[in-house]
Design a protein around this nucleic acid. Structure first.
Length: 459
DNA sequence: TGATGTTTAAGATCAT
DNA sequence: ATGATCTTAAACATCA
């Protein structure tokens, strides 16, 4: 599934792009200007989500789209997060997580000159017309979680569970399956104290996004199965897969009526805990969801700078607010650098977008996540609500086809189809979408999917 | 007996 | 400061 997971593909992309857009300023090998960081594709080669481990097969061939070899841990200067590499401090006795440098990789930059080194151009004028958007202040660094036992993956337990569920390709998984997948794919947990397994169980029990499926009487084995609760699978879609605190506007939107009722119901019980937007529950799955405004998301839409910081921080911790991404994408409040964040976040969730070069391509990831839908723009909104299963499967198939680099540039295709980002961008221009509408657009699409597909689309 | 599952509590971090 | 979110720890129950 990953598209730009390897330097090879990135190079191919670069070559293709240079072929198709020789006039593109800043993309030429000889061009040197302050905006190099935003227009050159050098970063793309550095931005390889694929693990540097040469012994492992490529992700595209493994059939495991969420394999952590695709998972990149980005850490940038200027976006610290509490001095830790994970949302929560590691156990005191966990020596594996103490004193570990966050920059484990060798920085690879497009140039050493301060005038061309994007890391030194903190606030460059972007090529997309959004001034003073901070650009890369530190090179992205790859951390191979599969082999590196010293860095705790920045993914919440709920995310890990989802990944394991998705990777299993089964509609339901056992606890041991989750354990195994995590230990196999995250070396950290192979060496960590087994208390993390308690946390996994804790998450499964209290996070109502997860549903226990009792084992049939004739099924041998111990314990039950776990799956994503279909009721809350779409909550992974509405931008709260990993984001705290949904917007009150979101809840008040028409598309969120049903969910709002659930949330209000949960609020009555008054339990304190939620995870990833899905309420923790106790005593038969207690429910609670904050209706507090997600002012963070709002801020992100107001301030590209803040948005960048927030995106970065969330990516670092494995958090990914699809809503914010949608908002940024649709509003155009993305710098190329922010696309990097989006790329990273999407990559961690298995959604890929090709190189983000200019503003119109900000929606590429959206198109990719939405399964490469080619829907007439004037009917997109209505259409997405009537997607049948076949369409979705076809979309999913199209999504998978993007593993092949050739599909990145279907220049040999006789039918020239409008690129999805162009369609969406056009619609966004003609009919400005509010954040809620963006949610609705996405929600409508995904709620038509089978629960498992909905989750899979994000993992 | 160990794995699994539930529940409670507390600490850390972040947003408001 | 406060509340929300997330992690961690622990006690306890159930079951194969």
């Amino acid at each position: 599934m990953p598209v730009l997971m390897s330097p090879d593909i990135a190079n191919k992309f670069k070559e293709k792009w240079l072929t198709l857009h020789p006039e593109e300023p800043g993309t030429g090998p000889d061009s040197v200007h302050l905006d190099d960081s935003l227009t050159s594709l050098h970063w793309l080669q550095n931005f390889s989500i694929l693990s540097a481990d040469p012994e492992r097969p490529s992700g595209a061939g493994t059939g495991c789209p969420s394999s952590p070899q695709h998972l990149l841990y980005l850490k940038r200067l200027g976006f610290p997060r509490g001095g830790t590499d994970s949302p929560s401090s590691p156990p005191a006795g966990d020596t594996a997580a103490t004193g570990m440098p966050l920059y484990l990789g060798s920085p690879v930059t497009s140039g050493s000159d301060c005038t061309t080194d994007p890391r030194l151009a903190n606030y460059a004028q972007t090529g997309s017309g959004y001034p003073h958007i901070p650009v890369q202040t530190s090179p992205p660094v790859e951390v191979d979680y599969k082999t590196n036992p010293k860095v705790k993956p920045p993914y919440s337990y709920a995310s890990l569970i989802c990944m394991a569920m998705q990777a299993s390709k089964q509609p339901k998984v056992t606890l041991s399956t989750i354990y195994n997948w995590i230990t196999e794919n995250f070396c950290y947990y192979r060496h960590a104290e087994p208390s993390w397994q308690n946390s996994i169980r804790h998450n499964l029990s209290l996070n109502k996004c997860f549903m226990k499926v009792p084992r049939q009487k004739d099924e041998p084995g111990k314990g039950g199965f776990w799956q994503i609760d279909p009721q809350y699978a779409d909550m992974f879609v509405n931008g709260i897969f990993k984001r705290r605190r949904m917007s009150a506007n979101h809840y008040s939107s028409s598309s969120g009526t049903h969910r709002q009722s659930k949330l209000l119901q949960g609020r009555e019980t008054g339990y304190h805990g939620t995870q990833n937007g899905c309420s923790f529950q106790g005593g038969g799955k207690r429910k609670h969801m904050s209706t507090k405004s997600n002012t963070k998301a709002l801020r992100m839409t107001k301030s590209p700078l803040l948005a960048t910081e927030a995106h970065s921080a969330d990516v670092l911790r494995g958090d990914f607010d699809l809503a914010s991404v949608f908002d940024d994408v649709l509003s155009g409040n993305c710098s190329n650098f922010e696309d990097l964040d989006i790329n990273t976040a999407l990559s961690s969730l298995g959604c890929e977008m090709e190189a983000s070069l200019q503003g119109r391509q900000h929606t590429a990831g959206l198109g990719r996540c939405m399964g490469e839908l080619h829907i007439p723009q004037q009917h997109q909104h209505q259409h997405h609500q009537h997607l049948d299963q076949d369409q979705l499967l076809q979309s999913h198939h199209s999504l998978q086809q993007f593993e092949e680099p050739s599909t990145l540039f279907p220049e040999q295709s006789e039918e020239v189809v409008l690129q999805p980002w162009e369609e969406i961008k056009e619609e966004a221009q003609v009919i400005p979408l509010t954040l809620d509408q963006g949610f609705g657009l996405c929600e409508g699409f995904f709620t038509e999917m089978q629960p498992w597909e909905r989750v899979e689309a994000y993992l």
